[in-house]
Amino acid sequence: MPKTLFCTLLAAALGIASLSACGDDSAAGSDGSAKSVTLGFVNGATTEFHTCLQKAIESEAGAEGAKVITANSKQDPAAELSNIEDMISRSVSVLIVQTVNVDALKNDIAKAKSANIPIFLTSVITSDTSNILGAVVVDLNGVGKLDAGWVAKDAGSADAEAGVIAGAPGAASDLLVKGFTEALPANVKVVANQPGMFNRAKAQDVAENMIQAHPNLKYAFVANEDMAFGALQAFQAAGKDVKIVTANGTDEGLAAVKDGRFAATVANSATTIGQLAVKNAITLLNKGQADKIANLPIALITKDNLSEAPKYCLS
């Protein structure tokens, strides 16, 4: 008798909906691999981080034998929900979401839960994790704190002005900025805080306005390295030596740390996030052993420890 028919008859006889011992074999092969698993990946934007995250997810899924369907919400919470609804209609095995806004996650999670599709988050999570399959989390507050620690050490006891060029409001950027501003010492005053929308040209415009309004600016915290290069161009054009601290750890960013264009960056590898997301999502889906909430290692990178930076992006 076929296993599925046997399970159906046995469940009916016992008056229960299902039997765990008769689980669906389509999710995993006998070796625990990702046989017939379809991952739906809803990305949040098109920055280098997001592009590298998707590369890692697609590469790792291929190594695990899983299929990936991708969509990009382009920083729009409404588009994110629409993308999730589309993934649900495609009957994906699990949803991996790099959200555009933490507030949007409530609706995202509810929508996935109502469709009985597990949801796995990258970078950030909500306070209640009971309704998600799992997550790979970046301590974004910690990233900001590490950069603030470098500024505090460099400034010593001297009074100094700092500017903040944030990303897009919501999700990652807010956590980064909060971590940085709250960890600064009292003698370092934040005199400007404006969003660069994770766009290099926009960040350059913000930096130009910032340095005009605050010609004594000594430090700038920039929410990612791509924007930091825009800010650097503005500061150089104004003839100002502003010390830039930022985040990511890309090859280009590390080169800027090496030659002094950036004072420091915090490495948080998009490749590692993507690889862990796929591995853990598949393992947890198949009831295997993995951390439900995995924390990504982060590290402050300066000229003194460049060799410690992990690989940021797959080629």
Rank of each mutant, 00 (worst) to 15 (best):
A263E: 08
V143H: 13
T272K: 11
Q236S: 07
L176P: 15
G249I: 09
H50N: 09
V188S: 02
P215M: 01
P169C: 13
A223S: 11
D24A: 00
T8S: 08
A171E: 15
A71E: 10
E182P: 05
F262D: 12
S82K: 10
A255M: 09
V206L: 07
T70G: 06
I298H: 03
Y219K: 12
N83V: 08
V37D: 03
N216C: 04
S130C: 06
I96P: 15
G170D: 15
G142A: 02
K189C: 06
A27N: 13
C313N: 05
G32T: 00
A270P: 13
L254G: 02
I69D: 11
I132D: 11
I298K: 00
T302P: 03
G230A: 03
A160H: 12
N72M: 05
V37G: 00
V278M: 02
E208W: 03
S307A: 14
K243D: 10
G196D: 05
A186W: 05
N107L: 14
G32M: 01
A79R: 13
F180C: 15
S315F: 14
S307T: 10
A79Q: 13
A264T: 10
D103P: 05
D108L: 02
I273H: 09
R90P: 15
Q75Y: 10
V92Q: 08
L5M: 14
T302N: 09
F41P: 15
T51A: 15
V94G: 01
K55P: 02
A168R: 06
V92N: 07
V266T: 04
M1D: 15
A71L: 07
L39W: 03
L176A: 06
Q204M: 12
S114P: 13
N268P: 15
A104H: 10
A13Y: 03
S91L: 08
P195H: 12
A183W: 14
G134T: 08
L296W: 11
Y219R: 14
Q233Y: 01
D251T: 13
G179L: 11
A238K: 15
F120V: 12
N141G: 12
E182A: 08
V102F: 06
L14Q: 15
D128V: 06
G170N: 07
T99D: 10
A231L: 12
H214R: 10
